[in-house]
Structure formats: structure tokens, C-alpha cells
Design a protein around this nucleic acid. Structure first.
Lengths: 244, 244
DNA sequence: CGAGCCGTTGAGGGGATTCAAGCTCAGTGG
DNA sequence: CCACTGAGCTTGAATCCCCTCAACGGCTCG
């Protein structure tokens, strides 16, 4: 279907069968290891498994200690998370050419459930393989990758907790997030109603109504323009009441 | 307020004023440059600006060619995107210690609007500074960072288009995503109704209703269990009709 | 053949949106 | 000084979309 103009260097000698498998990835996008030389490739291919998984098979689950990343060769994989109220949310899909489970490279546990939506072909790349390449990341690079992972995780968290469910629940979850940025006096940035709406996917009017409600219930107090104080205890009590 | 137990190495000689500024970041989390030695730090600090921005100031806008990353020293920054139907969505917040605008390190344009929610102190780090450190990423590391950025961008896109608006619109947007994973015969994975629901933040019943509707309108055709064919033309026409 | 899973469809109720009016408050200029 | 204005917030009333609960049909599989 797709024409291949340049044969990757490690394709010319396919002494190791895994080299041929990786060539298939190359068809779609630049392979993860496309930049390596022949010698390195022969070395790593020996350690990479390329299993085929049936639909609904679980690649890994959230919390599991990650010791491998995966490249998707065929099929679709979904990322799932479960809300603190126990609702499943599918956050994102990944397809051929995508790299998943990067947390493992940082020795972090996986953050999501990764499940095969269709029959899936993957390459399982142990963390050790990448570390053994002598291409170990410098401390600065390591630090950078951590920040990337943080951003990715924040994004997923936001999508999990702040985009579904009753507007009141989302509002409370947002207050939890904002509370983390409180200054020394416990003061928190109080967004405009329109901004609240655009964060939670609701209209500014509904945002206003719920803010009014929470003020009357003593969960928040508006102390100055664009500033408020959050009653953490009342917040968690209200959230608890919603989640049963 | 916060006690500082260990003085970072580059704090002991504060010959360059910027070194003191960076020390403030260190208080919160490990600073991006925390791993570097004194000499490197003196070198880079000369090239880093640490401006203070007023509320609602724009750090950068989506599409703008990125040539610097930013570290947040104080305040809150929001990431915005605009739906293809023209609705603003706030996707995520970043606070002190967070690194934003990483796309710039890969010579990519920024993907979001980054706006100061509160008065904000930031460090502006030109891409060249990181490249000049001699800590240049190997090709493999570069490839890894690209994948991280892809995942982050996918996540943001998902949150932008598939979490707000009418259920029908979200369904159509999801079909657009799925269509990208079509096989050679134009066949696409057809999720279960419950999965559709969990992707779009709606119930399986509403998902079913809209799927039925789209079948009658010829936008999709169910050709086998878990497989469908999408009529791209009809899809875009229906989307267009919704967006005015 | 019955059990169970999955999808469909209906009816009713509820929460969010929409449209609209009125309010406070800061800034401006007469 | 004070009316005037506009931006942001609040609140109300009516509508609509989605959720909830429910029943039913097709299908697979033991």
C-alpha cells in the first residue's frame, strides 16, 4: 500500500528475525529505533518480544510497576482511568506507531490501564534495553522527560475528574486542584465565572449557580476580587456526600 | 516560611544574580537545572530572563513557533485550546515548578495558548541554552521526547474535542478519530456502546441512540461485529451542519 | 432451550442550557 | 459630584438534552 523509498540500514541484512518485524513499524512512521546503527539493533532485537494480543487483553494496569514500554505495530489500544467516584473513563486511544507506557522509562508505575480495543500486535521493550544502549540520558534529559510525563499525567487527571459527572462534582474537584496552589495565607485564585465554565465544560451561569451554592454552604469564601478561601473539610464532606 | 535544609551547590557562590532567582524554584521542587554543576549554571543564567507578568498576560499562543521553554516560579498558568467549532476550552493548569512549552525543545510550534491566571513569575529558557549545554540529546532520546510530546498532544486534543458540547457532536468527532485507524478496506473498529459512552462521557443509551441515528443517515454502516465503515463525506456534512 | 450479554427503544424526570433581567462596581467624562 | 457606561456576577423562567429506569429482541454459548 505505502511505497517505501529508503530501506532502513538494518533491513539490508535481516540476520535477526526481529529486525524484519520492526521494519513493519517503519512503514507507518519513523520507528523508535530508526536512528540506531545496525550493531545496536542486532543487540536489542534479541531482547524484544513482539506478541499478538486478542481484543480486550490488558497490556498493563494502573499502579503496576512498569519495567517495559510498548510500541504498537497494529491495532488500537485504549487508556482507561477510574474516577475517584468509581466511574470508568476512557481517556485516549493509541494506534500503530505510538509508544505507550513511557512511565516505565522513568521507573514509575503505570498511570492508566492499557487495554487492546482490537486484536493488537505490539513490541515489548524492557527498560533495561534502552538503558543498555549506552545512550543513557544525561541528568538534564532525565529531568526533562520527567516534566513531560508530569504534564501528560496532569492532562489525563484533568480529563478524568473534571470533564464528566454532575457539574457540582466537577466544581468541587476543581476546587481541590486550585487549593493545591494556595498561598501562605490559604488564599486561592478565584477564576471568573466564564473561566470556571470553560474549565469544566459548563456555562458560566451554571458555574455561577454552583459557586453561590457553595458559598452559602461555607465551602468557599470570596475574600477579594479573584481571591477566595477554601474550607477543605467542608469540601471533602460535600464530595463524599455526592459519591454514594 | 519554608525552611531550606540543603543549600544547592550553585547557591554558595551567587556571583550571578540569576542564580539566586533559580534558588526560589528549588524550594518547591527539584529545579530543572538542579542536576547541573556550578560552571554550567553560571553559563546559562546569563541567558535566562525571569520576567513577572500581570494577570491575563499571554505567554504564547497556539501555532506560534516556539523557541523557548518556561519554568513557572510563582502563579498559575492555564492552557487553552479552541474547538473547531470555536469554543474555548481550558485544558489544564500549571503552577510553580512546572515546565511549560516543551514543544519548543523539539522545534515545534506551541500547541496551546498559555495565559497567566494570576500575576506570574517565570523563567524564559531559550532552546539554544539547553542545546549549548553539550548535553544534547542522542537521536534515541530525541525520538523518545517526540513520542512523549505526541502523547501529550493527543491527550489535549481528546480533552478539547471529545468532552464538551452536544453528544452528537462528540460522537462525530470520535468517528473522525477512529477513521484514522481504518484498515485497507476502510473498516474501522466499532466500539461497544458502553465504551463509546466512557469515551465521550455519556451513557451507553445515549451513545446507542446517536449511533442508530447516524446509521439511518448513512454516516456509518455496521458491517460486522465490532467493525463499521464510515462515510467521511456525510460525516463532515453533518458536523458542518452542527457548527453554525 | 434457557441464561446472559449486548444493543435498541420508550417514557419520565432532572440537570444544564438558553434567554433575559437586574445587580454591583470601577472607570469615564460631563 | 454624579450620571453614564460596560464588564462581571446573580437569579429567574422556560426549554432542551441527557440520564434513569425499564422492557424487549437478537445473538452466542453452555
Amino acid at each position: 500500500m505505502l511505497m517505501q523509498k529508503h530501506k532502513p540500514i538494518y533491513l539490508e541484512d535481516d540476520s535477526h528475525p526481529q529486525a524484519r518485524v520492526c521494519a513493519l513499524c517503519e512503514v507507518r512512521r519513523s520507528a523508535l529505533f530508526g536512528a540506531l546503527d545496525h550493531e545496536s539493533l542486532e543487540h536489542i532485537h534479541a531482547h524484544i518480544a513482539s506478541p499478538a494480543l486478542p481484543m480486550d487483553d490488558v497490556l498493563y494496569t494502573a499502579g503496576q510497576s512498569g519495567d517495559a514500554v510498548y510500541t504498537i505495530r497494529a491495532g488500537i489500544v485504549r487508556f482507561e482511568r477510574v474516577t475517584e467516584s468509581g466511574v470508568r473513563r476512557i481517556i485516549r486511544l493509541a494506534g500503530p506507531g505510538d509508544l505507550i507506557g513511557q512511565e516505565a522509562l522513568l521507573k514509575l508505575p503505570y498511570k492508566d490501564n492499557a487495554v487492546a480495543c482490537t486484536p493488537v500486535d505490539i513490541c515489548r521493550i524492557p527498560r533495561a534495553v534502552i538503558e543498555q544502549l549506552g545512550e543513557t540520558a544525561t541528568p538534564l534529559m532525565r529531568e526533562l522527560m520527567h516534566r513531560w510525563q508530569n504534564a501528560l499525567n496532569d492532562s489525563a487527571n484533568w480529563a478524568t475528574e473534571l470533564t464528566t459527572g454532575l457539574a457540582l462534582r466537577r466544581m468541587l474537584k476543581l476546587l481541590e486542584v486550585l487549593a493545591r496552589y494556595a498561598d501562605d495565607d490559604g488564599r486561592v485564585w478565584q477564576p471568573r465565572r466564564e473561566e470556571l465554565g470553560d474549565m469544566l465544560g459548563i456555562t458560566l451561569e451554571t458555574a455561577s449557580r454552583h459557586i453561590s451554592l457553595l458559598r452559602k454552604q461555607g465551602v468557599i469564601e470570596l475574600v477579594a476580587p479573584h481571591q477566595m478561601v477554601i474550607n477543605g473539610l467542608a469540601l471533602h464532606k460535600t464530595l463524599q456526600a455526592l459519591d454514594d
